[in-house]
Design a protein around this nucleic acid. Structure first.
Lengths: 220, 220
DNA sequence: ACGTTCTTGTGAACCCCTGCACAAAGTCAC
DNA sequence: GTGACTTTGTGCAGGGGTTCACAAGAACGT
């Protein structure tokens, strides 16, 4: 056996994906001044079963009290720590089209521990524009952003054609996490994590489920 | 046993979620005039393993030729049919904030078989505005949209607080599929399918993976 | 015509995840 | 202090999804 390392290494991916939901529910409870919550209540608020919630939380440790429930503040703090949100994460948004500008103006990021420190675009005609109060910067600013501001997460909001190039620029500058909104498969070296969110894909999945219940005769 | 119904009922959810990716890759191949493709090539283009691709396609039927590969046009057509995209799906976007306006201006939907037929908002001060060439309509227009235009999919781009109400309006009007961008858990009756895409959740998952490899010392 | 080569389709093993059932542990009432 | 009650934490079984290994089938060269 090697070093024990940190204690929270082996959380299943499926659990990790649900933790943000629990954190959101806990934050809402805390805002309403509720000090304690049972697994049943919290599970309902997060849209999962209570068994699954308890199993997920058990991966973090034993922070509940049997017969009572969970301390809201404490549990929120533990999940925050497990997700690595004890400090803000600097984020850069690449691509100032419609979606990029909407993301730049979105205020929800700051509330969840993310700080948009730069807006970039590969098109020289867009560089220098003002978007949501910030000046759009050129792609070659990326290395400095990583070194000087600890930039760690890149959001790709470019058209599909420019996504791989934007991704390469991010990776080369040292960014290790990428959130991709372009409908494209990005290839990255080992150690870089990419999550792709594609609006059309989501709609197509809904279409599949929709056709199963919809009446077959739809007039065009 | 009841009626045999359609033949494509039992496709695993995990497979359905990957079909749009295959379709996207096939469309790109067709645009380049490539008539045939092997499972290995297509899998690489879609970012999955060739075994998984073949297993997924086997749920649709046997449309490949051993020793040769798949006919690009034919396979694209079969997937299009399986997903229920042989005709356009009318979509309505609810909530004309930053994100809603960006979605309204996005042209990618039309290319993938979706037609935005209405933009709506619950705020009377926004109703009547022009967004991307369309006039924003009030929520009580929903029932007519369902009856007259076959509206089937609703996209919720409202703030978190108004999401459940917007969802209730959609469901009451007869919409059976909802794509939710608000960071909220929506409760719907049986038969209604909801998919939630939350940007902050995606970033938080990235943060978790990022902290595992990042150097612990990050200067604030 | 036949063997070689290539690629698909699929049975089977494996692994992860979810749900069930229950023991462990704490609180409250008296 | 004791018993009843509540709720967590978890071993175990069941199911679904992914990967492995290989048989089935089609084209091509000789």
């Amino acid at each position: 056996m090697s070093a024990p390392a940190t204690t929270r290494r082996d959380i299943p991916d499926a659990s990790v994906a649900r933790l943000p939901g629990y954190l959101r529910a806990l934050t809402a409870l805390a805002r309403n001044g509720i000090p304690s919550v049972s697994s049943e209540e919290l599970a309902t608020a997060a849209g999962v079963s209570s068994t699954m919630l308890r199993k997920d939380l058990s991966h973090l440790g034993s922070y509940g009290v049997r017969g009572v429930g969970y301390d809201v503040e404490r549990l929120a703090s533990e999940i925050t720590s497990a997700l690595g949100l004890t400090q803000d994460w600097p984020v850069a948004i690449v691509g100032m089209g419609n979606l990029g500008r909407a993301l730049a103006a979105y205020r929800g990021f700051a509330e969840r521990g993310f700080r948009v420190i730069a807006l970039l675009d590969g098109d020289p005609r867009v560089v220098g524009d003002r978007v949501a109060g910030d000046v759009v910067r050129p792609m070659h600013d990326l290395p400095d952003l990583v070194v000087d501001h600890g930039l760690a997460i890149g959001v790709i909001a470019t058209p599909s054609a420019g996504a791989q190039e934007a991704c390469d620029d991010l990776v080369e500058a040292g960014v290790r996490s990428v959130l991709n909104f372009a409908p494209a498969v990005l290839s990255v070296p080992d150690g870089v994590v990419v999550r792709t969110v594609d609006l059309s894909t989501e709609l197509q999945i809904l279409a599949f489920h929709g056709q199963r219940v919809a009446a077959p005769e739809v007039v065009v």
